[in-house]
Amino acid sequence: MKGRWFRVLVLAAASLPMAARTAPPPDPETDRQTLVRFFEARFPGIPKDDYVLGAFMVNPDARRHYEDIMSFPPFEVDLDRGRKLWESPMRDGRTYAECLPNGGERLAGSYPRFDETEQSLVTFEMLLNRCRAASGESPYRYDDRDTMGVLTAYARTLSDGMRMDIRIDSPGARVRYEAGRALFYRRMGQMNFSCANCHIDNAGRVMRMETISPALGQATHFPVFRGGDALYTLHARYTRCMEQVRAQPFPMGSGAFNDLEYFHSYLSNGLPLKASVYRR
């Protein structure tokens, strides 16, 4: 009797990896193209580059309002604070521009990037902290709006217009991408939602008063200034969405969020980066 149950259990356990083996995850580019086609069918006639506008892309009135605000952004002061940090020499006298490849310009769109030597992901924020470490400075916290927040709000504008170019070109990189993908599709929290439930399945629909943006294009324009002045980094937005479904958010700057950002940014490959924008 015992032996029989044991066998059933072993069989059940063995059948899991088998199922996974027969249905391998699609390769990233096929996966992305499928999603692009899905959204093209849902939003016919919307130009590809408009996806960086998020929810504004499907609502002409909201879009006009966005463009009005962007012509005289109320968050200019924060960008100025970021520029001051950017231009101030660090402990060893170097600036970020001197530390970074290409002076930090046209760079942010290829991050997160997988570091083969370290076998780990490096986000654009981590890259800035690497400069700080190399100059003998202590790192900025990833959840600190007044330092890392405003610094990246400015630094990313130096990559405005750059086409997103996230690379997954090694087995190690692929593992991080798959981890991020799994997180994006996993249901979580008391409300039992995945990111995909909202930003794929329900993109373009209205949740109470708020149109939900498509996953495509979401990672191109952070940080955003919600209401015109509240700085939200991409990880702060992830946190907000997880709180909405009553899930325990991962810490900003954590490995889990970096994985998610890697997958999520890859989806936007080819779209123009546009940093520091207004959001509702």
Partner: peptide, 19 residues
């Protein structure tokens, strides 16, 4: 519920939801 459902018979149910 108003995050996803409209309830047109209840005039006080303010939402534009269509999930």
């Amino acid at each position: 519920c108003l995050a996803c459902h409209r309830m047109p018979r209840d005039a006080g149910a303010e939402t534009a939801a269509n999930m």
